[in-house]
C-alpha cells in the first residue's frame, strides 16, 4: 500500500507522522518527497548507501542553424525562450532562460531548422539509505532551483511495491503536493485545530477529492485550539484517524531530532493503530470516500 502524508498548512506534523508511522511498522519504505526542504532524514538518521544525480532535459540552441523564425518561442508554454528576429535585433538573437524551462521538448520538436537539440542540467540529488530494516529515500533540490515536481517524480520512480510505501509530502495544494500524492492508495492529512490549520485542511480536502484519493485526518496538538476542525470532519464525514495531544516532552524530543516512538515507546501502539485505521478505510465494505463526494455534489 502507498500512503501519502500531506497537509494544507505547513508545520502541522507531516514528517512527525510519516517518520513515526514508518518506524512502527514492518517492511516499510519511507520516501521524503518534500525535496525543497527534506527533513525526515534528521529523525531517521539513515546510512546513505547510494546517491544519484537528478537531471532534467533542456534544449541546446545552435545559433548557426537558427533562422530566428520564433517558432520555439511561440510553442513554449512557460516563456523560457525569447527570439528577436533579424528585423528587430541587429543580427537576430535568441535567449533561453533555463529556470523557466519545464523540459517538455516542444521547442526541439517544432524547430523547422533542426537548430535545437536536447541536453541535460542537474536539479538535485536522490539519496538512498536505510536504518535497520527500513528503506529510506529522499530527494534534495539544488539551492536556487524553483521546480520541484520533476525531482519528486524521479524520486517516486524508486517506490518499492513489495513494501508499505510512506510518502512524506510537501505542504500546500500546488503542483509539488499533487505530484507527491498522485498514485497513492490513501492520503493522511495532518492538521492542527487552529483557524489556519482548518482553512488549509479544507483546501487540501478539496484537492484530494478532485484527485479521487481516499483520505483521513490526523489532528496534531489536538488539545490546543478549538473544536471547529473536528466539527468540520464530522460534517464532511471525514474519518479522524488519530489525535496526538500536545506534550512539551514530545516537543523536546522533536527538537533533539528524536522520533516520538523512541522517546515514548507507548506511542508505537498508537501509530500501529493509525495504520489499522487506514487499512479499515481501504476495505471495500467500509464507507467509500468517493461516494461521499457523489452524495455531496448530487
Amino acid at each position: 500500500m502507498i500512503i501519502a502524508v500531506a497537509s494544507g498548512k505547513g508545520g502541522t506534523g507531516k514528517t512527525t507522522v510519516s517518520v513515526n508511522l514508518a518506524l512502527s511498522l514492518p517492511n516499510v519504505q519511507l520516501i521524503d518527497c518534500d525535496v525543497e526542504e527534506p527533513n525526515a532524514a534528521i529523525f531517521i538518521d539513515p546510512v546513505i548507501t547510494e546517491t544519484k544525480e537528478a537531471r532534467v532535459p533542456v534544449p541546446r540552441f545552435d545559433k548557426n542553424k537558427c533562422t530566428f523564425c520564433g517558432k520555439c518561442s511561440d510553442v513554449c508554454e512557460y516563456n523560457a525562450i525569447a527570439v528577436l528576429p533579424r528585423s528587430q535585433a541587429r543580427e537576430g538573437n535568441s535567449i533561453f532562460l533555463p529556470d523557466l524551462c519545464h523540459g517538455c521538448g516542444a521547442c526541439e520538436y517544432f524547430c523547422p531548422a533542426g537548430a535545437i537539440s536536447e541536453t541535460y542540467r542537474p536539479i538535485g540529488v536522490i539519496e538512498f539509505g536505510d536504518r535497520d530494516t527500513l528503506q529510506f529515500i529522499h530527494g534534495k533540490l539544488n539551492i536556487g532551483k524553483t521546480m520541484s515536481p520533476p525531482l519528486i517524480r524521479q524520486v517516486k520512480q524508486f517506490m518499492n511495491p513489495t513494501r508499505t510505501v510512506i510518502l512524506d509530502s510537501p505542504p500546500g495544494t500546488s503542483c509539488p503536493v499533487i505530484t507527491a500524492v498522485e498514485g497513492a492508495d490513501f492520503c493522511v492529512l495532518v492538521t492542527e485545530p487552529t483557524p489556519f490549520g482548518l482553512n488549509d485542511l479544507q483546501l487540501a480536502v478539496e484537492t484530494l477529492r478532485k484527485l479521487r484519493i481516499p483520505f483521513g485526518v490526523v489532528i496534531n496538538r489536538s488539545d490546543l485550539g478549538e473544536e471547529k476542525t473536528e466539527r468540520y470532519c464530522s460534517a464532511e464525514e471525514i474519518p479522524v484517524l488519530m489525535k496526538i495531544p500536545f506534550s512539551e516532552k514530545i516537543a523536546e524530543s522533536y527538537s533533539r531530532g528524536e522520533p516520538i516512538i523512541m522517546a515514548f515507546p507507548e506511542y508505537k501502539d498508537l501509530f500501529q493503530q493509525l495504520y489499522q485505521n487506514i487499512e479499515q478505510q481501504m476495505k471495500p465494505e467500509s464507507k467509500d470516500i468517493f461516494s461521499q463526494e457523489t452524495a455531496r455534489e448530487g
Partner: peptide
C-alpha cells in the same frame, strides 16, 4: 501571465520596433 511575462513583454516591445523603453522597474528576464 503565470511566469516569464518579462520575456513576453520584451518581445512585444521589440516587435513594435521600439528603440527605447521608459519605465519604473524592470526584472532580470
Amino acid at each position: 501571465g503565470m511566469g516569464g511575462v518579462g520575456i513576453q513583454s520584451g518581445q512585444m516591445v521589440a516587435s513594435k520596433q521600439a528603440k527605447v523603453v521608459l519605465t519604473g522597474k524592470i526584472g532580470p528576464n
